[in-house]
Design a protein around this nucleic acid. Structure first.
Length: 122
RNA sequence: AGAGUCGGCCAGGCAAUCGCUGUGUUUCCGUAAAGAAAUGCAGAGGAAAGUCCGGGCUCCGUCAGGCAGGGCGCCAGGUAACACCUGGAGGGUGCGAGCCCAUGGAAAGUGCCACAGAAAAUAUACCGCCCGCAUUUGUUUGCGGGUAAGGGUGAAAUGGUGCGGUAAGAGCGCACCGCGCGGGUGGUAACACUCCGCGGCACGGCAAACCCCGCCUGGAGCAAGACCAAAUAGGGGAGCAUGUGGACCGCUUGGUCCACUCCGGGCCUGAACGGGCUCCCGGGUAGGUUGCUUGAGGCAGUCGGUGACGGCUGUCCCAGAUGAAUGAUUGUCCACGACAGAACCCGGCUUAUGGCCGGCUCUUUCU
RNA sequence: CGGGGCGUAGCGCAGCCUGGUAGCGCACCACAAUGGGGUUGUGGGGGUCGGAAGUUCGAAUCUUCUCGCCCCGA
């Protein structure tokens, strides 16, 4: 199983982010808001939008980014071709690592489920 | 043992698995570039923070210099430079080790000092004290003068103590202390000493009020700056094709030259113009590349210096990301892990913060 | 990352340069006026001047440090 996380699997520029923010499905709990939109390929891509407002210290923001990347790369092969942007909620700054991983697992499952439902309909 | 004070050091370790960034080597794929794989090496801080100072670097401006504005401010040294550091001087504070100080000038000038108080700075006199004259039953009142010891006000009141002196007093005189000026001695200097002379004292505070004196200072900042440069729109140029009318040349096909200008309104006409195509040029947006890490560099030794620091020798290369890299999981050990994440780079300051070690001081107890 | 600005009553602001009394509007409370309400008039209450040090006799004001918020530069 390939669980690497390369530059190919990231949202690289402003236009990619704008594309997701313009029109996206949403999955949300008290730790993260996850936006996603099909990108027309087989590989999922991840973008991070960790706000200073919801997490004041730079070390805290770095921690959240690492957790999200770590979780993403473990589930990369299970996910369809989506552009995903993860945003943080205030509660995430105070949560421990296990809680964050649990929350992200749920988000990935929801992405997968909703996407396959849509694909089935169309 | 407790309390305090100063200085130095560390910033969880190890193992396994899965990953991230840079870079070297090898292999694969390719004309090449790019890419992929394997593997080696390296990969956040003492504050990376606040952005409060000082520099380097870059662009703009610029003869030198001066003014304005801003900054600094005991002395000497260190430094690329500083508001930093070291050593010293003088104050303040603490029993002490120590700590703190924007610490030049108020006899260059201007200004301010609320309330209270007689008076807040040229001095002056409310209650008093004293003398003289007048007055009164009565040292009661009034007038004139002397005085600044005492009272009271205030943050601050015009040297202090003692003796002499006097009507009462007063540097009025004297002694000691303090102060100022000059000289001397020690020190590079700030300053100190008081062996000496002079001055009876002439000098309230505030310069983080204006200011004066001395020294420093051009402006902006890596989102600086440099380079490459799509699409679309627009600018400039060249060429091709092309309408109408008139004139000219020509036997004809045809050719040449000129005009059809701009704004507003009306009418007529709907032939033409406005238009189309191709190429080139520079400006420049998205985007990309660069600036980007070898430096006032680290470590070790040695020499000079009280020290900050400097000289010499040897040795090492030690993050360079760009939605932004150091992590996750598990095991294990212990002190059970605080504050906290580089973004052009250095030197400081300040603030946040866990622990360890050492020197010194005070208190208590024991020997 | 760099550059600049602002914190004063519940809200919006003045006062700060030139230091001694914190003021204005809206809001709030009471009274008057009305049958009642609004409008109006009169009076009143309410402020650690973001926080901590320093200078000064005295600081919202001057100086330093610190906390929070806002704006600008791709």
């Amino acid at each position: 199983m390939d669980s690497r996380f390369t530059p190919r699997s990231r949202l690289a520029d402003k236009t990619s982010y704008r594309r997701v923010f313009e029109k996206a499905e949403r999955s949300r709990d008290n730790m993260f808001t996850v936006l996603y939109r099909p990108n027309g390929t087989d590989v999922p891509r991840l973008g991070l939008a960790i706000s200073k407002k919801n997490c004041r210290l730079a070390t805290g923001r770095n921690r959240l980014k690492r957790i999200v990347r770590e979780s993403f790369r473990h589930h990369r092969t299970e996910l369809p071709g989506l552009d995903i942007v993860v945003m943080n909620q205030p509660a995430a700054a105070r949560a421990n690592n296990n809680a964050l991983f649990g929350s992200l697992d749920a988000h990935w499952r929801q992405c997968n489920q909703r996407h396959s439902e849509k694909a089935g309909k169309s």
